[in-house]
Write a protein that binds this DNA or RNA. Structure first.
Length: 302
DNA sequence: ATATCTGCCTGCTCGC
DNA sequence: TGCGAGCAGGCAGATA
């Protein structure tokens, strides 16, 4: 799953590869991938636009263009593959449909059936969007805030001090797992890095945010920075599908302490890692290091 | 504000 | 070997 470190890796690579290049043609093979505007408008407006910058916000990839902003979300299995020679997936052969745009029910015949959108650049490079699950979405907007406006702060932003994180946490009665996955609370965390950060901070995923002591919030703050920074340095985690813009896997999976390690020993204490469903998500944790808080005691009287 | 449910999708595992 | 069922999971949208 592409989360903050994975999208950051792609953004940094594409910043070098794409800035200054101009979109020559757009091919849409699965129209639902385009969230806004209509797929036809989307393609028409993109042609002729030059890429001026590529950045990340939360898990979104943001391409600043001459006119407007192209924003995309890779969701679960999305890959954005840059090929300087433009000869990788060759999704050129169309089905028998005489229509210019393939209908949703009649997928075009592509060399790679999972490529749903292609940007052909004037340099000859291609940018191919590949997504087995088809959950990813593209947005072409005048105002980026229309898509990004509801995102919470960036976990690595210096403005998010331990004190500020503590203040945000203690105002909420949701469980940490639930809250940290909420993109309006913090932008960019997904299932892998929430589990890893909670392990690093020695906090139970079931802990109610409002009960955190200051020292525990500080531990969580430090853990988020440690886990995310290390993952960026390692160019992301390839658990199953993730690839960078040049189709290379990341290296961070070798540093995972709990995610996907059910039954294996906790690197800190040796207790077997457990996997439960918390807040509707598969959740990995060490039952010893991340012991559940004692049930809130009903004080008989005081 | 919080919690829960559905739909979007396909590849994979599992049981028969 | 093949089949259907169930599952995973980020997010939007609806509902309680």
């Amino acid at each position: 799953m592409p989360e903050l470190p994975e999208v950051e890796t792609i953004a940094r690579d594409l910043q070098h590869a794409l800035v200054g290049d101009t979109i020559a043609a757009v091919e849409v093979y699965w129209p639902q991938i385009v969230a806004t505007p209509t797929p036809e408008e989307f393609a028409a407006r993109l042609v002729g636009q030059t890429v001026q910058g590529v950045v990340r916000r939360g898990k979104f990839l943001v391409l600043r263009l001459t006119e407007g902003t192209l924003i995309l979300h890779l969701r679960m299995t999305g890959q954005l593959l840059w090929d300087p020679d433009g000869r990788r997936p060759l999704p050129a052969v169309r089905g028998p449909s005489p229509d210019s745009t393939p209908a949703a029910g009649a997928p075009a015949a592509c060399a790679d059936p999972h490529v749903h959108l292609v940007l052909r650049m004037r340099s000859g490079a291609t940018l191919c969007y590949r997504d087995v699950r088809k959950f990813g979405r593209f947005y072409l907007v005048a105002d980026p805030q229309a898509v990004l406006g509801r995102l919470g702060p960036e976990p690595l932003d210096e403005a998010l001090t331990p004190q500020r994180l503590h203040e945000r946490l203690v105002g909420r009665r949701r469980r940490l797992k639930d809250l940290l996955l909420d993109q309006a609370f913090l932008a960019g965390l997904g299932n892998i890095y929430v589990d890893e950060a909670l392990w690093e901070a020695r906090l139970s995923p079931r802990r109610v945010a409002s009960t955190l002591r200051r020292e525990e919030s500080e531990r969580l703050h430090a853990a988020l920075r440690t886990v995310l920074s290390r993952a960026i340095d390692a160019r992301g985690t390839t658990f199953s599908d993730y690839r960078d813009a040049r189709d290379r896997p990341g290296e961070n999976q070798r540093y995972l302490a709990v995610y996907g390690r059910r039954g294996q020993p906790c690197p800190r204490c040796g207790t077997p890692v457990e996997r439960d469903v918390v807040a509707g998500r598969g959740t990995h944790y060490c039952p010893c290091c991340q012991a559940e808080p004692a049930a809130p005691k009903e004080t008989p009287d005081g």
